[in-house]
Structure formats: C-alpha cells, structure tokens
C-alpha cells in the first residue's frame, strides 16, 4: 500500500454547475500527489457519459446570479433551461474555466479512479456502453474499501 494521501469523493449531482467540484478537486488532489477516487451514483452518473449533456437551472436555486431579475414562473418557461445553460457555458469559456470534458480527461490522465455505482446504473437502465472507458463498477462496499483508507472524504 502506498503512503500517498488519499481523497475519496462521492459525486451525486448531474448538473453542469455541480459537475465541477468533483473533477476540480480530484484533478488538483492528483497534482498534489493524492491518490484519488470518485464514486459516481444516482445523477452523478451523468458525468461519466461519453457525451455528457449537462444543464444548469435556476429553478429551486435562488442563489444563481441572474443577468436580469426574473419571476420564478418565467424561469420555468420552455427554452429557459437551454438558454441559461448556453449563457453559463459562454461565461465559463470567457473566464478561462475548463470544460467538464477537459477536466475529466485531466483526471483520467492523472489516474484518478472512477467508479460507477452498479445499482444506480441498473436502476436508470443505463448501459456500460454509455460511459467513457476506464470506469470500473461496484457498490457501497467497493466505495468503503478505498474511502476507509482515505484522508479526505467528500459527498458532493
């Protein structure tokens, strides 16, 4: 067993904004010499799709900065989610924030281990072919095998 520090993350969210913390933290930890593992479960599985189609929504999220104040009902109109996602992506690009695909590649390059929760893969009728290469599959016990030895453990 190596004496490197270890970071264990559970990624449960499948939106564009919440896709960032797991990949930013795991890639940075790897750069700092940590051995890192991310366990993807429920909506977090979206982050492992070959072509992730991640969106952002202001619904139920009053903390999201809006370019113009907008009533909640208007935020629910068709097309709003797509528009907000496009605006967020544009903003990220202009600020030099990496894309999720890029950050994920950097994680894989740095040997961050990615584990998909088999139970939720089955629950959502997803197929292993939907996911990128290099993912392994397991359950709660698999998570604890690594997390039990970890120095930092995060639920995102």
């Amino acid at each position: 067993m190596s004496d490197d520090k270890k970071l264990a993350i559970i990624a449960t969210k499948g939106t564009l904004d919440w896709a960032y913390p797991p990949f930013i933290l795991a890639s940075t930890a790897a750069a700092l010499g940590y051995e890192s593992q991310i366990f993807f479960t429920f909506y977090g599985l979206q982050l492992l799709k070959k072509k992730p189609d991640l969106k952002v929504t202001s619904l139920g999220n009053p903390g999201m900065p809006m370019p113009v104040p907008m009533p909640v009902l208007a935020q629910a109109l068709p097309g709003m989610q797509g528009m907000m996602t496009a605006m967020m992506k544009q903003k990220m690009k202009s600020k030099g924030v990496a894309s999720i695909e890029d950050l994920r590649s950097l994680c894989l390059e740095a040997e961050v281990k990615m584990v998909a929760c088999q139970m939720t893969v089955d629950l959502f009728d997803m197929s292993r072919e939907d996911f990128i290469d290099g993912v392994s599959y397991g359950g709660a016990a698999t998570f604890f095998e690594f997390a039990g030895e970890s120095d930092i453990c995060l639920f995102i």
Binding site: S27, G96, L106
Partner: peptide, 13 residues
C-alpha cells in the same frame, strides 16, 4: 494566462 482554477496548477504539475 487566461486560465482559471485549477488549470494553472495542473499545467504546472
């Protein structure tokens, strides 16, 4: 230049 967290660190590494 122009890159945001965590890219400068990852590139440096």
């Amino acid at each position: 230049s122009g890159l945001n967290c965590p890219l400068p660190i990852l590139r440096a590494k």
